[in-house]
Design a binder for these strands. Structure first.
Length: 701
RNA sequence: GGUGAUGUAGCUCAGCCGGUCAGAGCGAUGGAUUCAUAACCCAUAGGUCGGUGGUUCAAGUCCACCCAUCACCA
């Protein structure tokens, strides 16, 4: 029976690059979708960039571009990265679309009509400088429990306690550094606490295998027991300025990004429908007989298993058939780390020349239907890909094709279908299909590799290389190699969902139409001509992996200019030294009291202008934007290491309360921070940078 | 802190409802072989199944506690 299936992966946020952690989900989904398509089902895979919200707005502002330009650019990057890993979306769209807006407005209106939307005035921190309300993550201050500095508005990373932003001591805006003030604002709420929502969700989450058992338990925890009604209303609006969809009839109020993100699945599908003639309603109307699956990370289970089905149900749409949550990626047993170089972007993986199918295979080999984290162990990655894919699988074709081409003009003879290996493959097909369907890819891979072992053992037993030397054994040789080529084909069919590009090469080598799942039950006809074998997959070289890690480690560094600098003498260093020496020896000497250090006012600054100074050997004139503190002119002795043009737009750190110094070329109103070898033995001077999120004017301490 | 998950051979992992489950692949070692990117094939490896107590005729497999790691706590 032909199924009609709609599949989604979570929408990546449009403010950053796709990395190997993201790819776990897209590769997992893609394998599942490809399997369904191979089986002949009608299966549509849609996704989109998640483009709204404060972080996008601020990022665009920081880059000096409009949010639309930013999300366009990122959309291009994401599309490229996914294509590079053979993630075969039927549509990769954007939430910033009229389709998504229409769906969001429609759902909002229907929820309102159902009496599930209400407005309420809440008090929230407001940044008077930026003139915007601040999300919790953009408010920092001292932890009310332990007093740790620079903690976010929702919880303390130092002591782990959770609190609300209004409990923070000495709060400040992470956007402008200003002291935020509490202001009132009217917000829209989705009344999740309504008994209709609670009883629906209690039923929905605990029935029909909607969720994995661990996920269902987690949901049970969130929902509480019958009558406990733990769910609270969900704030779905944000005040201007906000990048998103303005709520109809509510000027200055916007849908919260997490409201329109899942609706982006609908928007993307609607867009696909308009291009292909598919029937949107058939897939989304209440009571639809089609299937709808969401692949997500376990971190967003709350949104997909509570908010989303409740919205759909009460807006009169169908709810997801199932939600599949997966775990996170670790690399070599630890969280991905920029400093260790294990925060690896998709782009860098491809740019370093690594084969995307290596990663697809490795992920497949480790994926299961559970929410457990999976580990990318780099040594294991190399060993597994080389031994399984090259040593076992591809080797079958490689070791048999030559004989067919050389001795039999590329033509196969009848495959011996009574062969144990052929029989075993046919016998295990259904089991393997079950593993694909059930997202137990690791088990599928284990099965397939055991079958590949059988194929190699067969070749080893019939020894074509000996037959080739014995006159009169042509027939046996022909049979042996035809059998081996057929075994390779059958295995390639089984692996196609995981290795689509390799499957194309195999199809070309075998001179056949694209594999379907049913091809795993047949063999090639006698007389079928294959093409000569060309390598389908190379081995992973450890040096490639090392280089990849190294590249990602370096990409975080502040991109110091490579220009070697012989004399590291410069104004900053000299001045810094004299400043410190006034208090004592710079290193390993007397301590500096905190309040003494705090007298040095360090701020994040953006280099607004940079130019050469006529007549100066070392100086560059900088005009710094220090946010609320205005602009300052600073002369920096970095001419030999930095081209002024390359400095514009960079964030760095400046001492703003250094006594101004009259120089021959003008007044220098501060000093930027840069690193260099104190002894002057190592060449180079390296400007300090601020991590993403820092804004001009922020205090450095 | 609360809740949940995980902890099995050097590495990555299987082990469903307790009784041939102490396993597989890779690595390592030895052997065989040379068709294949030194690939492949055969054999071997003896890990107190995180720790300590329980339940049971019988426990990686159930219970309690402890340790470690991870996640979630809107």
């Amino acid at each position: 029976m032909k199924r009609k299936i709609l599949v989604t992966s979570a929408l990546p946020y449009a403010n950053g690059a796709i990395h190997l952690g993201h790819l776990v989900e897209y590769i997992q989904t893609d394998i599942w979708v490809r399997f369904q398509k191979m089986c002949g089902h009608e299966c549509w895979y849609v996704c989109a960039d998640d483009t709204h919200g404060t972080p996008i707005m601020l990022r665009a502002e920081k880059e000096g571009i409009s949010p639309e330009v930013l999300i366009d650019r990122v959309h291009g990057e994401h599309t490229r990265d996914f294509a590079g890993f053979h993630v075969g979306f039927d549509n990769y769209y954007t939430t910033h679309s009229e389709e998504t807006r229409a769906c969001a407005n429609d759902i909002f209106a229907r929820l309102a009509a159902a009496g599930l939307i209400e407005t309420r005035t809440i008090e929230q921190y407001y940044d008077p400088l930026k003139q915007m309300f601040l999300p919790d993550r953009f408010i920092k201050g001292e932890c009310p429990k332990c007093g740790a500095h620079d903690q976010y508005g929702d919880n303390c990373e130092s002591c782990g306690s959770a609190y609300t932003a209004s409990e923070l001591r000495n709060p400040y805006s992470a956007v402008s550094g200003a002291r935020p003030e509490l202001r009132q604002s009217e917000h829209y709420f989705f009344r999740l606490s309504d008994h209709r929502c609670q009883s629906f969700l209690r039923r929905w989450t605990q029935s029909e295998d909607r969720l994995q058992p661990e996920a269902a338990n987690k949901l049970q925890e969130w929902l509480g027991e019958e009558g406990e009604d733990r769910l609270t209303d969900w704030d779905i609006s944000r005040d201007a300025p906000y990048f998103g969809f303005e709520i109809p009839g509510a000027p200055g109020k916007y849908f919260y990004v997490w409201l329109d993100a899942p609706i982006g699945y609908m928007g993307s599908f609607r867009n696909l429908c308009s291009r292909t003639g598919l029937d949107f309603d058939e897939y989304w109307k209440d009571g639809s007989s089609t299937e709808l699956y969401h692949f997500i990370g376990k971190d967003i289970l709350y949104f997909h298993a509570l908010f989303w089905p409740a919205e759909l149900e009460h807006a009169g749409y169908r709810t997801p058939t199932r939600v599949f949550a997966h775990g996170f990626l670790t690399v070599d047993g630890a969280k991905m780390s920029k400093s260790r170089g294990t925060f690896i972007t998709a782009e860098s993986y491809l740019a370093q020349g690594l084969d995307p199918e290596w990663l697809r295979y490795y992920y497949a080999a480790k994926l299961s239907a559970t929410m457990e984290d999976i580990d990318l162990n780099l040594d294991d990655f190399i060993a597994r890909v080389n031994s399984d894919l090259v040593g076992k699988f591809v080797n079958i074709a490689s070791r048999s094709a030559g004989f067919i081409v050389r001795h039999f003009a590329g033509r196969l003879c009848t495959c011996d279908e009574s062969l144990h290996a052929v029989d075993a493959i046919r016998d295990r097909r259904a089991v393997i299909a079950g593993h694909y369907e059930g997202r137990e890819f690791g088990k599928a891979i284990r099965e397939i590799m055991a079958l590949a072992d059988l194929a190699n053992q067969y070749v080893d037993r019939v020894k074509p290389w000996e037959l080739a030397r014995q006159p009169g054994s042509e027939r046996e040789l022909h049979t042996a190699c035809s059998n081996a080529v057929n075994l390779f084909r059958l295995l390639a069919v089984l692996l196609k969902p995981v290795l689509p590009a390799l499957a194309v090469k195999a199809e070309d080598f075998l001179n056949v139409a694209p594999f379907t799942w049913d091809d795993g039950a047949t063999v090639l006809a006698a007389g079928h001509a294959i093409r000569s074998y060309r390598h389908m997959l190379t081995r992973v070289d450890r040096r490639q992996v090392d280089a990849l890690v190294e590249a990602n480690r370096q990409s975080l560094a502040a991109a110091p200019p490579p220009a070697p600098q012989r004399h590291a003498e410069h104004q900053e260093k000299a001045a810094a030294r004299s400043a410190v020496e006034a208090e004592g020896p710079p290193v390993g000497g007397a301590h500096v009291a905190l309040d003494e250090f705090m007298r040095v006012d360090l701020r994040v600054a953006r280099i607004a202008e940079a130019s050469h100074v006529e007549g100066a050997d070392k100086l560059v004139r900088l005009l710094l934007d220090v946010g609320p503190l205005g602009r300052r002119q600073v002369f920096a002795g970095i001419k030999a290491a930095y081209d002024p043009a390359a400095l514009v737009g960079r964030l760095t750190v400046v001492i703003v309360n250094l006594a101004p110094r009259k120089m021959r070329f003008g007044l220098s109103e501060g000093m930027i921070l840069a690193a260099s070898d104190p002894e002057g033995r190592q060449p180079g001077i390296f400007l300090l940078s601020a991590d993403a999120g820092a804004q001009p004017g922020m205090r450095v301490k």
